[in-house]
Amino acid sequence: MTVTTPTLRVATRRSLFWIIAGVFLVLIAAITLVINGAARGASTPFSATDPSPKGSKAIAEVLRQQGVTVTVTATLRDTERALAAHPSTLFLADPNSLLTAARLERIAAPAQHLVIAGPTFTQLRALAPDVRGAGKVSKASLAADCSVPAVRAAGSVTGTGSGLRLDPTSDATGCLESRSGVFSLVQRDTITLLGATAALSNEKVDERGNAALVLTLLGQDDHLVWYLPTADDAGLGGGPTIAQLTPSWVGPVLVLLIITALTAAIWRGRRFGPLVIENLPVVVRASETMEGRARLYQRGAARLHALDALRIGTVSRLAAACGLPRTATVTEVIDAVAGITARPAHDIRSLLIDTAPTNDRDLVRLSDALLELERAAVTALTPTDDRPKGE
């Protein structure tokens, strides 16, 4: 028996399907990540740097052309620093309520004017406790109905956004009423709560009086701080970081584990390429293979399986001795052997097919019977003159 070490080309051909499947899955995952990332980063509502339809870059650019200094901030610290530098109007859009009440009060105090887009429950409770949310508003147009200068300058605005209600004892001014007691703009002292958020978007700013409304609200001072809080601003702040909470021994242990893993990988890892440098044949004796298989059959008590292996070899040799084609059936082989040896066909069939050994003694007996049958067939087919003496 000859076994050859598979070459790299053969091994690659065998694994070609799995290689292609793996590459395909990696490509699908990469495309999905790119699409999802593009979808997440495609539009940022209220962003002064986003030119997409949902962004608000058009408003910021027009304010700059009108002489207003627009400072875009993304952290609470930068916002406080910008407010301390100049008297400024602060524009805040925090739809996810990332800022706590304490942080809202910290940035509202130094601002000359505060404009909040789409105020949430947390923002209303902290800065305007006499104002409550009133759900969504989806009217196409809202007419000016109060004395607030920005509203009078607009005339009418797009009503899409959220509504606000005033407590009966509130002294705030409600404007742009969409239904009884529901307003899309509320002004309380230096704080303006803007529920008509569609007026801030690039796609709606040029409709009706939207531009006049937002430009008047945000251009009240020479400096405007445009603040969109991020996840870094969430929480109370001042707490320990993950690095501070991590015990000092974690770092060295992680380094030791990484070194151990690399060492184990080098020690136990498989080599690339064939185990044998040259493609040399390895010769194994047939007797060793036979004995190995016999031990496996014996250990598993697979007597019938072992006998079947012997029967298959016997049938093949009998068919060749009788001159039958390779496609001959077992029945045809039985009939041919029965005609040659003058033995009953049912006895030969019982030996080649039907009889099952129940113990090792039966297996040995049937194996000997197979040898005897094959020997008898060969003897019957051998001419008398060519037979060895004694037969």
Rank of each mutant, 00 (worst) to 15 (best):
M1S: 12
T5Y: 08
T7K: 07
L8M: 11
A11E: 12
R14F: 05
S15V: 12
L16S: 09
W18V: 12
I28K: 06
I35T: 13
R40C: 05
S47K: 03
A48T: 00
G55A: 01
A60M: 03
E61C: 10
E61Q: 15
V62W: 06
V62R: 13
G67F: 05
T79P: 00
R81M: 10
L83W: 01
L83A: 01
A85E: 13
S88C: 07
S88L: 03
L90N: 01
L92Y: 03
A93Y: 04
A102M: 12
Q112V: 11
Q112A: 13
P119N: 02
T120S: 14
A128Q: 01
P129E: 05
R132D: 08
S138H: 12
S141L: 11
L142P: 01
A144G: 06
D145A: 09
V148F: 00
A153R: 05
A153G: 06
A154V: 03
V157T: 02
T158G: 10
T158N: 10
S184F: 02
D189C: 08
A196K: 00
E203I: 10
K204W: 11
R208T: 00
A212C: 03
L218M: 06
V225P: 01
Y227H: 03
P229H: 00
T230L: 07
G238K: 09
T241V: 07
T241E: 09
S248C: 09
W249N: 13
W249F: 14
L256N: 10
A261W: 12
L262K: 08
L262P: 03
T263I: 12
A264K: 11
A265W: 12
I266F: 14
V284Y: 10
R285I: 10
A286W: 09
A286D: 12
S287H: 10
M290Q: 15
A294M: 11
G300C: 06
L304R: 14
H305L: 15
A309E: 11
L310Q: 09
I312D: 14
G313N: 11
G313I: 04
V315T: 05
S316R: 15
R317W: 05
A320W: 10
A321T: 07
C322H: 14
A336Q: 03
A342P: 07
P344H: 14
H346D: 14
A356M: 15
V364E: 15
V378A: 08
P383W: 06
T384W: 13
R387S: 06
P388E: 15
